[in-house]
Amino acid sequence: MDPHVGSGKIITAPIITEDGVPINDPLVLLEATSSSSSSSSANHRLTDKHTIEWKLTLHQIGLDVLRTDRSMLFYEKKENLSKLWDILAVYAWIDKEVGYCQGMSDLCSPMIVLLNDEADAFWCFERLMRRLRGNFRCTQQSVGVENQLQHLASIIQVLDPKLHDHLERLGGGDYLFAFRMFMVLFRRELSFGDSLYLWEIFSFIFLVTP
């Protein structure tokens, strides 16, 4: 694990190259260096593929954290932003297959807001991702959430064929307009409070379905 995690800092600039060489740009070091242990290994080239891929995502996590729920007073405190960054960074480390993807910060944010303890927030997020990680699993042929879009299309075609035909005529028969809704569970379509009300319904469904 990297010493930046838990340091109270948020990484928003690349700290390593794709070849595993640490970036020694002064501005990057000013932001990223959090301890003597990290500075002492500034010139140490990494060879482990998983570690390199993980470190390459840390600044993207930081950029997404700064954009997440920015209208909330809660995130005016840097310590709350760093909690969100810590949880996403740790999750990206333990989930070697999926890692971190954009949209995860929207799913994790309510855990930070509702739970004071960072460890509790992490495990709630990890539990949620057990259900949703398939949405973020990508291959060269498809994105995980596409299966849900196909199910939605089939349901609408049966329940409201006129609406389905209308969407087909408009070129929306692939239902890509619902992509973000499924990815982040309506976090960006609804207000923070309204999305949590909807999540209560989702949580009940999660409890009664295997």
Rank of each mutant, 00 (worst) to 15 (best):
D64P: 02
F204W: 12
T57F: 07
A153N: 05
M104E: 02
F179S: 15
I156V: 15
V208R: 13
V65S: 02
L198R: 07
M104W: 01
G172S: 06
S154Q: 14
D117V: 00
A92Y: 04
E189I: 07
T57L: 11
C124T: 12
D117Y: 04
C108R: 00
D117F: 03
G134R: 11
L167N: 12
L207P: 09
D120C: 00
R169P: 09
Y175A: 03
F202H: 10
V65G: 01
K49N: 14
L152D: 06
S154V: 08
Q150F: 12
D120S: 02
C108A: 02
D160M: 10
G8Y: 08
L128Q: 07
R137W: 11
H59N: 01
E126V: 08
M111Q: 12
Q60M: 08
Y91V: 00
R70G: 07
L73Q: 14
L58D: 05
F74M: 05
L30H: 11
V65T: 03
D2N: 14
P110N: 03
S191C: 04
M72L: 11
Q141H: 13
E53C: 10
V184D: 02
G62H: 01
I11E: 03
D194F: 08
L46C: 08
L115W: 06
S38F: 09
I205G: 06
D106N: 05
Q60G: 03
F182R: 01
A121S: 05
R127T: 06
V184M: 00
H164W: 10
Q102C: 03
G103T: 05
P14N: 06
A153S: 11
L66H: 12
V28Y: 05
Q102V: 04
S37C: 13
I11T: 07
E76R: 15
Q148S: 14
H59T: 00
I61G: 01
R137E: 10
L58A: 07
L63Q: 10
L107P: 01
A42D: 11
G62F: 03
I52Y: 09
L198K: 09
L190K: 06
Q60R: 12
I87L: 04
F179D: 14
L63C: 07
V90P: 00
I201S: 11
E200W: 09
T17I: 04
I156D: 08
D120K: 00
V184W: 00
P26H: 05
G144Q: 09
M1A: 09
S191Y: 05
T17W: 06
L30A: 14
M129D: 00
R131N: 04
K96Y: 11
P14L: 04
V65L: 01
L56E: 10
K55S: 10
L107Q: 02
N135H: 09
M111C: 13
S39H: 13
G6M: 03
G99N: 10
P22S: 11
I205A: 09
P3R: 08
P14I: 01
K162I: 15
L84R: 01
D95V: 01
T47S: 13
T33K: 08
K9D: 06
V208P: 11
T33H: 07
M104V: 04
M129V: 00
F125R: 00
T68Q: 01
W93Y: 14
N147P: 06
N116C: 06
L81G: 02
P3M: 07
N24F: 09
S191N: 03
D117G: 05
L170D: 15
D117P: 03
A13M: 15
V184K: 00
T33Q: 09
H4M: 14
G62T: 04
G103Y: 00
Q148P: 08
R188N: 02
L132F: 08
A32R: 05
G134Y: 08
